[in-house]
Amino acid sequence: MNSDRRKILGAAVATAVAGLFGNMGVAQASVEDTEAAIKAFAGDAEIGSGSLTLKAPEIAENGNSVPISVLVDSPMTDDAYVESVVILAEGNPNPAVATFHFSPASGEALASTRMRLAKTQNVIAVAKMSDGSIYSDKRNVKVTIGGCGG
């Protein structure tokens, strides 16, 4: 009985290794598609870091619903505010996830939602400020595979 169990778990874990790192056979957006999307959003502006924080779990329990949030440091006045934040997923069939549009009436440039991730990959957020400056942040999210083929 014990050895049966060991075999089952061994096989299951082996599949997990393949599942975590193998190609799941999903049509994949290339990293280039993501870069093109960033270019379309940001134009020729230089992309800075800081100011924008993307929050995402290190490990998502299920890729069908992954909580993410963005927070941009900005006074959110008529003179200086965050216009929009685009969310992109490098390893999804299509990199586009969502674009948040803020206004001075937002008070604070914070937004949370739940997204789909086809596999372990980078999630990228790019913010455009009212003065045209651009900021970006990136998180790698590991997407786990359920037990026994489930």
Partner: peptide
């Protein structure tokens, strides 16, 4: 019981 009694708390694949 194989999963939910004897191996509860452990991982089956990444679950």
């Amino acid at each position: 019981a194989s999963c939910h009694e004897k191996n509860q708390g452990k991982y089956i694949r990444a679950d």
